[in-house]
Amino acid sequence: MARTPPPPRGGASRRQAPRPPPPPRPEPRRGGTSVPVGRKLGRFAQHQLAAVDSLLRLLSDPLGTLLAALVMGIALALPLCLALLLQNLQGLAQNVDAAGTLSLYLDAGLAPARQEALATSLRERDDVKDVTLITPAQALSDFERNSGFQNVLAGLDKNPLPPVLVLTPRSLDVDVLQNLQRHVATLNGVDLAESDLTWLQRLRALVNLANRLALLLAVMLCLGGLRVIGNTIRLAIESRRSEIVVVKLVGGTDAYVARPFLYCGFWYGASGGVVALLLSVLCLFVLSDPYARLLGSYGSDSVLHGFSLSSGFGVVAGAALLGWLGAKLSVLRHLRAIEPR
């Protein structure tokens, strides 16, 4: 039709409901050609065609596709890396369960004989499994070895560290441990009784808090990713406007028109997921050494664990779904507005 300025659609609006299924159209046998009407493809084959077609279309513009995938990938990589780190920390917090000990910092001036006596009396208690005495000299040499502050420590004129009794309780029950802690803190010569348990509890609380934060971050960044994909698809729709008009004129259904864009979003999402995985592997690689060293200084030989194959697959699938959803939202908003006039 001659393309006049589009007048607003007046009069009756097209009926929306009810929507009976489209009647099967008898194949017209007329027409200018004598070639028989062909077979129709199944729904699956049609989807396959659209999926491959949109993938090829994306690959024909590798730079643009890469950029879109990068944006999506980076948005996803942030919460992913955080989740990875938290997963490792959580594993750690579980492992140190067994290491619930009490540290009794004794008065700095306490005579060595009194220290020994205290240790012996504590060893006799039923709820105590073992007591180890760490003298200030021992503590200093340990500290020098592990901290790397030799030079600074050498400059001190006297050893600032107190003698410490490390007490291993028989039970790891929190209540028992807390009772024991309260009791030993009152003993003569004990300055401070600190349990690893509080540290553990703090770590767990911290990990919980960080988990929540990661979740919030993930939700926000996923929304951002949705927006990015939606915008990319909106531009794609805009650039193919004339094609959409022609397709609608020759009888393309809304679903047919939307399909390539939905698959486009799907592929953007999936490639973004792959990029996010690659980025998190890179982060893992960069962080694993300092992480191992940090934990090594706590006496742990734990290493940073990455994603399992199945959760990696889950990440890509989730990202693809996110891409599809972003495209769907964009298609719902923009595609219907394009009607042949």
């Binding site: 039709m1 001659a2 393309r3 097209r14 009926r15 929306q16 409901a17 009810p18 929507r19 009976p20 489209p22 009647p23 159209r25 017209p28 004339s242 094609e243 008009v245 022609v246 609608k248 004129l249 020759v250 009888g251 393309g252 259904t253 809304d254 047919y256």
Partner: peptide, 23 residues
Amino acid sequence: LSRRQLPYYRRAIGVVFQDHQLL
């Protein structure tokens, strides 16, 4: 004709445009 039936209806019509509308 409902919006849903419209594409199927259009398939039975061949249209030739002045500006041919080729891609």
